[in-house]
């Protein structure tokens, strides 16, 4: 049975697309058939993060409008079998997406045997974001340990609980998972950053995983490779844990505590 997972946050720049790319890659690496859809019409970026920007011929809007078939628009990932990308349109305006059109595409993907359909939401709480979450069964709430991000996440949680199809039909609610990104345990220990427990407390959402702030994320996006594939990186390991936990494995949380500094470094280091 297929599951629709939305990656959302309200606030921009917190790591939705990075998370969508790594999460869907991780699921595909586990052997599932995965489609990841970029809902950010006009500001397409998932293709760039996944390294397939030069292979986009048809996009999501073309399919919604009936100008191309789903098979024509789905881009098959070159590295990982069973991973497909549906790019957002770069030229159309946001009204090009309709609820009926999105529903049709999701139904077609389900019929085509996709196990997971990952919806990369645009920032904000407007139509694009609402359409991205409307058909979701589960949601990854991407949050930075920072006041405005936490506030916007709370706002988007309210929308998930009130304006999704599940909410409107009175079905079981969307399963919510917190993904805390750009986490810096050193600053948390110094009392300069909200801790995982603080954010869990504030949002009342179960933690799927924390991704430590890492230089590897920028390096990975520079080269068009989801950071989860940089095996040695802490961010990659954090995303792999996130995928495992999402699939039901019980894995202890990592990267939550600061590395121990020696006395010398504490006194004279930066």
């Amino acid at each position: 049975m297929s599951r629709v997972v939305v990656v959302t946050s309200g606030k921009g720049g917190v790591g939705k697309t990075t998370t969508s790319a790594s999460f869907s890659t991780g699921l595909a690496l586990k052997g599932y058939k995965v489609a990841v859809i970029d809902f950010d019409v006009g500001l397409r970026n998932l293709d760039l993060i996944m390294g397939c920007e030069r292979r986009v011929v048809y996009d999501f809007v073309n399919v919604v409008q009936g100008e191309a078939s789903l098979q024509q628009a789905l881009i098959k990932d070159k590295r990982i079998p069973n991973l497909y990308i549906l790019a957002a349109s770069q030229t159309r305006d946001k009204d090009a997406l309709t609820q009926e059109g999105v529903e049709r595409v999701i139904e077609q993907l389900k019929e085509a045997g996709f196990d997971y359909i990952v919806c990369d939401s645009p920032a904000g709480i407007e139509k694009g974001a609402q359409l991205a979450l409307y058909f979701a069964d589960e949601a990854l709430i991407v949050t930075n340990p920072e006041v405005s991000s936490v506030r916007d996440s709370d706002r988007i949680l309210g929308i998930l609980q009130a304006k999704s199809r599940r909410a409107e039909k009175g079905d079981a609610p969307i399963v919510e998972h917190l993904v805390l990104t750009r986490y810096n345990p050193n600053r948390v220990e110094a009392g300069e950053m909200l801790s995982v427990d603080d954010v869990i407390d504030l949002l009342s959402v179960k933690l799927l995983g924390a991704v430590p702030e890492s230089e590897d994320v920028l390096n990975a996006s520079n080269s068009g490779m989801p950071v989860i594939m940089e095996d040695k990186s802490a961010a990659s390991q954090a995303y792999k844990d996130i995928v495992e936990r999402f699939l039901g494995e019980e894995i202890e949380h990592r990267f939550l505590t600061a590395e121990k500094k020696g006395l010398f470094k504490k006194l004279f280091g930066k």
């Binding site: 936490v150 706002r155 909200l194 801790s195």
Partner: peptide, 17 residues
């Protein structure tokens, strides 16, 4: 500690919103 300040402010704000 500024993190405590952040948490206190958010608790009040989120409850209100």
């Amino acid at each position: 500690k500024s993190a405590n300040l952040a948490k206190d402010r958010l608790q009040i704000l989120l409850a209100h919103e």
